[in-house]
Simulated scan of single mutants.
Amino acid sequence: MFSAAVLSSAKLVTTLAVYAALGLGACHSDDTAVAKAQTAPPTPARRKAPVAKPVAKASCITTNDTLAGQPFGTEPTVAELLSAGAKVVSRKPFANVHEKGQTDTILTLQHQGNQFEFYCMPEQRLLRRAVITNFRPAYGQRLRVTLDASARQNGGSCIKMQIRDTERANNVSATFSEGKPAVARVEPYLD
């Protein structure tokens, strides 16, 4: 029985020695694999192509009678602007070229950073020029809709835009910053 126990323990020792040798060999081969990986030149990582942002056109010109003739939709009047808090900046006399002896007035108003110039006759007041830098008032929002519609007609955003009618009498020009209007100039036709 003693010999059976010794034989059994000898088999156990041999088996353990084989497993130990395999284990050390495995560790040894892992070490060489690690060493090879450390000395091998790194493979370049694949880079994703950057996503191209849409590029705004330098300038766009659109001919559209409606957009050029009614850039605000409903045009702001002197009375509306004054009731909304506009201040009178200047009143300049202007000789009427059609009625001899009649003196009209060029009235300039300032409203929330925007400037409006009206040609005032006894019977009516006509918008002569507007420079819009603040698009928050209702008339500015309506103008922004017009500018956006014109940009869509041009197939995308523009840095500078000009909208005119077929007779090239009414003009709206705008400068954009980051796809949004920064300054717009409205110049309706006046005789």
Results as ranks from 00 to 15, higher is better:
1 M>P: 05
2 F>Y: 13
2 F>S: 15
3 S>Q: 15
3 S>D: 15
4 A>V: 10
7 L>T: 15
7 L>S: 15
9 S>A: 11
9 S>Q: 05
10 A>E: 09
14 T>V: 15
15 T>Q: 08
17 A>N: 02
19 Y>E: 06
20 A>R: 10
25 G>W: 01
26 A>W: 13
30 D>K: 15
31 D>E: 08
33 A>L: 12
34 V>I: 14
35 A>P: 07
38 Q>G: 13
39 T>Q: 12
41 P>M: 00
43 T>C: 08
43 T>N: 12
44 P>W: 03
46 R>H: 15
46 R>P: 08
48 K>A: 14
50 P>W: 00
50 P>I: 15
50 P>K: 14
51 V>D: 06
51 V>A: 13
51 V>P: 00
52 A>T: 13
54 P>N: 11
55 V>T: 11
56 A>E: 06
57 K>H: 10
60 C>G: 03
60 C>D: 00
61 I>K: 03
62 T>M: 04
64 N>H: 07
64 N>D: 09
68 A>I: 06
68 A>K: 02
71 P>T: 04
71 P>C: 08
71 P>Q: 04
73 G>V: 04
73 G>H: 05
75 E>Y: 10
80 E>Y: 03
80 E>I: 07
81 L>S: 01
83 S>G: 12
84 A>E: 14
84 A>Y: 05
87 K>F: 09
87 K>A: 14
89 V>C: 00
89 V>E: 05
90 S>F: 07
90 S>C: 10
91 R>M: 01
91 R>A: 09
91 R>P: 01
92 K>H: 14
92 K>Q: 14
93 P>I: 08
95 A>H: 10
96 N>R: 04
97 V>S: 07
98 H>S: 14
98 H>W: 08
100 K>H: 07
100 K>P: 10
102 Q>H: 11
103 T>I: 13
103 T>Q: 07
104 D>Y: 01
104 D>P: 08
106 I>H: 02
106 I>Q: 05
106 I>G: 02
107 L>G: 02
110 Q>R: 11
112 Q>E: 14
114 N>T: 09
116 F>K: 01
118 F>E: 02
119 Y>T: 05
121 M>C: 13
123 E>L: 12
123 E>A: 13
125 R>A: 10
126 L>D: 04
128 R>T: 10
129 R>G: 00
134 N>W: 07
139 Y>Q: 08
140 G>C: 06
143 L>F: 02
146 T>D: 01
146 T>N: 01
148 D>H: 10
150 S>P: 12
150 S>V: 12
151 A>D: 05
154 N>R: 11
158 C>A: 09
162 Q>W: 08
163 I>F: 00
166 T>M: 05
170 N>G: 01
171 N>H: 11
172 V>M: 05
172 V>S: 01
172 V>C: 02
173 S>L: 07
173 S>P: 06
173 S>N: 07
174 A>K: 00
174 A>E: 02
176 F>M: 08
177 S>T: 12
177 S>I: 07
180 K>D: 06
182 A>N: 09
182 A>K: 12
185 R>Q: 11
186 V>P: 00
187 E>L: 11
187 E>T: 13
189 Y>L: 03
189 Y>Q: 03
189 Y>N: 04
191 D>Q: 07
